[in-house]
Write a protein that binds this DNA or RNA. Sequence first.
DNA 1: AATAACTTTCAGTAATTATTGAAAGTTTAA
DNA 2: TTAAACTTTCAATAATTACTGAAAGTTATT
Lengths: 167, 167
Amino acid sequence: MQYQEAKEKFISTWGSLGSLWGINKAMAQIQALLFISTKPLSMEDIMQDLKISRGNTSMNLRQLMDWGIVTKVLVSGERKEFFTTEKDVQELARIVAKERSRREIKPVIKVLDEVSSIKNDGTEKTKELIKQTKALRELTDDLDTLMNKLVNQKQNWLTKSVLKLMK
Amino acid sequence: MQYQEAKEKFISTWGSLGSLWGINKAMAQIQALLFISTKPLSMEDIMQDLKISRGNTSMNLRQLMDWGIVTKVLVSGERKEFFTTEKDVQELARIVAKERSRREIKPVIKVLDEVSSIKNDGTEKTKELIKQTKALRELTDDLDTLMNKLVNQKQNWLTKSVLKLMK
DNA sequence: AATAACTTTCAGTAATTATTGAAAGTTTAA
DNA sequence: TTAAACTTTCAATAATTACTGAAAGTTATT
């Protein structure tokens, strides 16, 4: 396999994996492209490489910047804007975990809290609803906390040692 | 908040959360309904409660059974089939983690391996592609392993102690 | 202050994904 | 073995989501 093929394979795989970490295809592909690029790219570069429209590129770059995954960089002597992504995978994971937690998991925990605190009228079905939503709330909270703690370890000694412990 | 409202809130929240654990809305809602139900439900029950068609119910129940989350139960004296879901959240998490790993993460790791093992022709861009995809492969593998190990602990002493350790 | 270089917005459209419902299929009971 | 009770399948359609491209907006240069 040659460079070009490998590059395309990486970008398309990472793109279709976007759903796993909660972002859309174009967003994931732009991030992938920047991730393996040796220098910052302009909007024009990205459009041409991924064959997507200017509007699409602009919108998705914005979202990536909202997530804190991509940043604008100024290239001296150039009028247009250039973009680059976080290159360190640990830091990338940290950002993604934090954002997903904030955007999706925390709101769900809030709803589970509300639901599980309805008045217990003593009926079977109410008891079951309370019991099950409480259990789900606990689990969601534990996994959320754990994920955040893990990826937060800048030096990943803890992750490594936990992994070793468990093998 | 009364039972009915709480129930609807739980089902719709869990449904829209489906994307987070990789299944579609109807699938997640059916699972949610079964999860808080005190007894197994028939296809008819599910259709009526969630206001979805027979076909949709049938297809999504099948998928839930494929995942191993929902099982058929025979109710004596009844001709039709009844369904129930795994009620233990730990076990549920274990199944979901295992399935997602198998369906999505493992195949990605395979591609990352292929891509990162292209011939190093010494150019900058090739070196960058190899370096970055290798880093991503390591991280993906670590997180996958960790997640599986964690939810695999039937008795969750390890999870608890790791959580405590990290707080 | 006019113009060129560039970016953003958004209505329209395309692509994708989910849902319906009725016909075909299957199982059980009489 | 027939018919009723039930489930599955799948082509058609609806709903959702993503993408385009051109016009409007912004910023820098002369």
